[in-house]
């Protein structure tokens, strides 16, 4: 499974988020990995799920992409809860 952590520049916030998403995926037993990218590139990059702050997810959402909003980028608990809700409980 391919996840994409997205932020404005694809350098800071999204990298930090991707560290924690990868940790959360491992703990939840979700196969795959999470890379990070800037908003403009992410719009044309395919991924199973896109994850990032709510305002960035709103701008990425196009009716086809599956987005996962996260408020606290460093909270492993919130990230795990969101992955559970959006990925595990859906599939």
């Amino acid at each position: 499974m391919k996840l994409l952590a997205v932020c404005g520049n694809g350098l800071g916030t999204s990298f930090m988020l991707s560290l924690n998403v990868n940790k959360a995926m491992k703990e939840l037993g979700i196969d795959g990995d999470c890379k990070n990218m800037d908003l403009a590139s992410a719009k044309t990059e395919s991924a199973d799920y896109y994850i990032g702050s709510p305002e960035i997810m709103e701008q990425l959402e196009d009716g086809r992409k599956k987005v996962i909003p996260v408020v606290n980028m460093v909270s492993l608990n919130e990230i795990k809860e969101q992955l559970r809700k959006h990925i595990l409980e859906v599939e």
Binding site: C7, G8, G12, T13, M16, L39, G52, S53, E55, I56, Q59, V71, N72, M73, V74, S75
Partner: peptide, 11 residues
Amino acid sequence: KELGPYIVLMP
């Protein structure tokens, strides 16, 4: 201004 306050990493 353009993209919103995504730089707020956590509360």
